[in-house]
Design a protein around this nucleic acid. Sequence first.
DNA 1: CACTTGACCTGTCCGC
DNA 2: TGCGGACAGGTCAAGT
Length: 299
Amino acid sequence: MPELPEVETVRMGLQRLIVGKTIKSIKDDNFKSFPNDTTEVKMFVIGARVIKVRRRAKVLIIDLSTKYSLVVHLRMTGQLVFAPAANRSASTPDNRWGGGHPNDSLIGELPDKSTRVILDFADETTLFFNDQRKFGWMKLLPTVEVPNMPFMQKVGPEPLLPDFSFDVFNKRLQKRKNTTIKAALLDQTVLAGIGNIYADESLFLAGIHSSSRVASIPVVRLRALHKSIINVLTLSLQKGGSTDRNYVNAEGKKGSYIDFAKVFRKEGQPCQKCGNEIIKIRVAGRGTHVCTKCQKVYN
DNA sequence: CACTTGACCTGTCCGC
DNA sequence: TGCGGACAGGTCAAGT
């Protein structure tokens, strides 16, 4: 599921691949994936040039020369995949998305049945917005309105920016003091960008059981958690994110962080630190992976 | 207000 | 082999 490192990886790819290109046409599936009015879309998207690709939390913002922005949330199964002109109808799957190891890619011929929106550029390249489960969305908004979206108004700080200090983190955490630490980390108003994978991984590294009540966790452990969040997200970003099921970057390629995960999807396997069996439980309504020996419950 | 649960979807996997 | 049901999880609405 695209979380901060995955969305940031997509952003970097798109920034490199589509900035400066002019949009020739747009096709959408007339579904909730792209609820905008057709006239508005034609007026502010067709003929527009891509100025910049930004990210806030798990949301991508594609700024256009018309002072409108395409705002995209991939939710669970969304993908933004760029297709070079020459490769669009190529027949060799291994190099269609830029070569590399065949297992690097999960993408076949596009568009496919998960394709929701197609952006055709003037140079014959294409950007596909795919979303198997239709939870994701793309919206067209005036660029100045983006910060006024309800989500943007309440979302918490970016954990990889230098101003994400322990004090900032802890102050927001303590507003959720009576819930589990896992629920608090998944709450986007506490901090931006953590989802199920990085919640489990950072709690393991900090030695805190996911079920622990926020208010009962010693400050020294919370400091460790603050550090482990930054470390985990930074490492994952270096590895191009995690491909658990169907995440791919802007070039259709998988990320490799999952190979470095300590607990996520490791149930039944021995903990790399202590050898104890990693178990899967349910916390905050989510599948949760813990080593009960390395992660202490504070209640 | 704090907190929890269910809904939104579809592909995959498991048991029968 | 086919089929029903559980499961996967980001966010929001509705519930306690």
